[in-house]
Design a protein around this nucleic acid. Structure first.
Lengths: 308, 308
DNA sequence: TAAAAATACTCCATAGGTATTTTAT
DNA sequence: ATAAAATACCTATGGAGTATTTTTA
């Protein structure tokens, strides 16, 4: 036994002879001479313990085994030949895997167009999406369970040193109130902003502070700013749940303006008056994550922003 | 650039380092020393134009590209490693392709159990089945479009020199008549054989002679033997068609006894009296076809015969 | 007898070894 | 100070070349 394994070189030799059915011509195609090619094939046959060619001094043909084996050999050759290109495409971020986390609010705003755009320019990058709160995403990115997190902007000081934050967009919060409020004249359409004290005429529904502290503080800060005493009467962890509760007339809430694309019978979105808080959404990733897919996604989304 | 291609050896080196994340230990696992391993990886990275490892003098880790590329490399290694075993299995006929032709009559007799038996003992041999008359199969086997033909036995002298014939089984012909014949008392069940002259009380349906000369001659010979003038009134090319015509009361025919498993309302099978002709079915293949799948199929079917 | 594969040998490129240096902890 | 990768240089195996023989259409 020469080596422990079949070599790619031997497979190339085999396939050349299988194509040409002539050692001389096959050798020419391989830029070598006939004798070492004969020896290479002999060595291969010995190593396999199998006759690949039926040859007389005048004629060469594939044995049944050779004929059946050729596609297997060809497949290995082709996959091996593709490896360098694969490596380069991975390096350029044209291929690969991108594990992306996102907050539920993003699902009604920037996320869908961002994904669509990236998919068209990078069709061979597989995107894994995972919805989670900003805090959970931050942990996941730090533990290398996510490559990127689309999160509510953390306060500058609170950003982990190992992470990079890239701001994407800001949007004001709006009120969500039961549709009945319009009929009752408590809220109107369009240019009829609702004051903080008027909003609190009904129980307030919000994320628990432990799940979304930044967003929670933004809301409570708004009422504090206007000197309105504020407390949360009902907690919910999903955007859809909050809107559903409002639609059922169980209370009111405040959400990012992009949520207005989520229509629901019974609930209506109304602008707020006073110093309206803005929520900022952006991307986080590990500073030491040099994956090209991450780089490409960030610039793809930034370009999309620029087009607005 | 060293060679034109990535070598399997380099892939083994890469995967060892990727597993160990330590050049010394990886080298030990590869039964080599550390310096040539470092060089091998460097050469690979240069050839790919891609950084696979992020290394300091104290620490080695996979780059994002390396991490993503490893599964591709591993796949090639595994498929290459499987090639020798594949060749040996092909040589033993445990894997491969078998293109089998068969006459329609066999489909109601020996063929299904033969296929079932062969499939259980040779699960990785892909069987391609093709129904055709004996003559068409003979041509196809000679042109290497079929590996094996399950045919009506040709007369010894008529067998092509390039072919081998292997007898499998003989069976008598039986009459197929409309069921009404039983009510009319013209044919009974079981031990009440029908004479050739009685059978010809209705139009005779048969394969055209050009499609199935051996079978045709067997039938006409039966009537000639008994001095009964005979002519075919209706030709049909498929067994099912013949039985269907009989069931519709349009005529009578003669078929191999195994066809009795094909029940059809309106048609009934009745034994014949006199010198009942027997039809022989067997396998043909090219004398120079040394494929193990062919050998194995022939002996598998022969064994099945022996069990009867 | 001529075309083509097999055999015999020769050579050198390169995979791998040994010795040493560099560097980060 | 030490562990571990890089560098420098050496060795030898085996892949490929040249010359020749063998075989059979």
């Amino acid at each position: 036994m020469t080596g422990l394994h079949v070599q790619l070189r031997q497979l190339h030799h085999f396939l050349a002879v299988a194509d040409e059915l002539h050692f001389g011509r096959a050798a020419a195609r391989l830029n070598m001479t006939q004798p070492p090619l004969s020896q290479s094939i002999q060595a291969l046959e010995t190593e396999l313990g199998v006759q690949l060619f039926l040859r007389t001094k005048r004629n060469v043909e594939l044995s049944p085994v050779g004929k059946a084996w050729a596609p297997h050999a060809r497949r290995v050759i082709e996959e091996a030949a593709a490896l360098p290109a694969t490596a380069r495409r991975l390096a350029r971020g044209e291929m690969g895997l991108l594990r992306l986390g996102f907050v539920s609010t993003a699902d009604y705003g920037m996320l869908p167009p961002a994904i669509t755009r990236f998919r068209t320019t990078h069709p061979d990058v597989e995107i894994t999406l995972r919805e989670a709160t900003s805090d959970v995403q931050t942990e996941a990115v730090l533990n290398d369970e996510l490559d990127l997190g689309l999160v509510i902007a953390p306060p500058r000081a609170a950003l982990h040193k190992a992470l990079v934050y890239h701001r994407l967009w800001r949007e004001p919060l709006v009120a969500v109130v039961p549709e009945t409020w319009v009929r009752d004249g408590r809220a109107g359409f369009g240019a009829n902003p609702l004051a903080p004290s008027s909003l609190l005429a009904a129980p307030f529904i919000l994320f628990p502070r432990r799940s979304a502290p930044v967003f929670h503080d933004l809301v409570s800060g708004y009422f504090a700013d206007h000197g309105v005493p504020f407390s949360v009467h009902q907690e919910a962890i999903q955007m859809q749940t909050i809107i559903g509760l409002v639609a059922s007339g169980l209370g009111v809430s405040m959400v990012p303006r992009s949520l207005t694309t989520l229509k629901r019978d019974g609930a209506i979105y109304v602008p707020l008056s006073g110093r309206v808080p803005e929520v900022e959404t952006g991307l986080i990733w590990r500073r030491d994550n040099k994956a090209a897919t991450v780089r490409n996604f960030v610039s793809s989304v930034s370009d999309l922003q620029a087009l607005d």
